[in-house]
């Protein structure tokens, strides 16, 4: 879907992006992770040509973006930014309808799409005529997403989409986003400085520093097989809790006892559920169950950690 090759951006005072290459496959989410000044936002903005690269090539759907008409390219790519960038003088409905109207959609179709998106993102229908200033930060963020999704782009670029929100709202919205079918269908490049967010949302993560990609891979690869000291140190602080994002119930199954039938009182979880989500769902000594290759496996918060310990030991040996 997106191919970036040898991308460089030289400013008069500094080198912002230094020979960056990566590819993002269809329906994949790539997170550009890094501290401020690492070049992640500059890289993102070069994809929809808000910034022109000094050298290098970017292809979207196999065509170099320099050969596309600027506004046509941008209308095919959803763009979500921090503080949402909603037009304060447009109603919520008008904000969402912005790109469809630029594309001169039929008005009926536009209205249907607004209603569909608002229902999907759990925004009350009465908000259609409200102005952005009348909404909470979380609600505005959902509108920002709705606007980016409105014209059904296959690609979404997200620049710190949740940066302006408090941590509680952030993780709630994050979970919501992840579970939306429409978003899962998109090819996404997301920029964040939040390591948890990167691990939670990214299929792959590119850790950037000083304009270069230090390592690109799945969260598990970055966590367990860092290529250099920088990568290791970057995750050191949160190493323990990040494991909960890097592994799913499935991964633990070899280290847990299994039973032939499901215990009748226990809740059933899908096997691909991240451990972090399991932890936040579990209360006290509750037992839950998941199914892995015809076996039912029970688990409690007390049994997660020993199993995870064995898993890690096994990983480091292999």
């Amino acid at each position: 879907m997106i191919a970036v090759r040898h991308l460089t951006k030289q400013y008069p005072t500094h080198l912002a992006v230094d020979d960056v290459s990566f590819e993002v496959g269809a329906r994949e989410t790539l997170v550009l992770l890094g501290t401020s000044g690492s070049g992640k936002t500059t890289t993102l903005k070069m994809i929809n040509r808000l910034i022109e690269p000094t050298s290098g090539v970017i292809e979207v759907n196999g065509i170099a973006i320099g050969e596309r008409k600027l506004h046509e390219l941008r209308r095919e790519i959803g763009y979500v930014i921090q503080e949402t960038g909603l037009f304060p003088h447009y109603t919520i409905g008008e904000n969402i309808a912005l790109v469809p109207r630029l594309l001169q959609w039929d008005e009926r179709k536009t209205q249907d799409r607004i209603r569909e998106l608002m229902a999907m993102l759990r925004l009350p229908e009465t908000f259609v005529k409200a102005y952005p200033s009348q909404l909470s930060g979380g609600q505005r963020q959902r509108v920002g997403l709705a606007r980016a999704l409105a014209a059904q782009p296959s690609i979404l670029l997200m620049d710190e989409p949740l940066g302006a929100l408090d941590p509680v709202t952030r993780s709630a919205i994050r979970r919501e986003f992840r579970n939306l079918e429409e978003i899962r269908q998109k090819t996404i490049v997301l920029v964040t400085h939040d390591i948890r967010e990167a691990f939670e949302l990214g299929d792959r993560v590119a850790l950037m520093d000083g304009g270069r990609i230090q390592q690109i891979g799945t969260p598990r690869e970055l966590l367990l097989r860092p290529v250099n000291e920088f990568v290791r140190n970057f995750f050191a602080d949160q190493w323990l809790s990040l494991q909960l994002h890097a592994f799913s119930l499935q991964d633990l199954s070899p280290y847990l006892p299994d039973e032939a039938t499901s215990p009748p009182e226990a809740r059933l979880f899908p096997a691909h559920t991240q451990l972090a989500d399991v932890m936040s769902e579990l209360s006290g000594s509750e037992t839950i169950v998941f199914q892995s290759s015809q076996r039912f496996i029970t688990i409690q918060s007390a049994t997660i950690w020993p199993a995870l310990g064995q898993l890690l030991q096994h990983q480091s040996v292999s």
Partner: peptide, 25 residues
């Protein structure tokens, strides 16, 4: 500037940015 960039990022031409965003605001 964030609003202007958002508008450009969504595919508004410079004239559309002026008429729909900058001038009204």
């Amino acid at each position: 500037p964030a609003l202007k960039e958002a508008a450009r990022g969504m595919g508004l031409t410079p004239w559309q940015v002026l008429v729909r965003l900058e001038f009204p605001l």
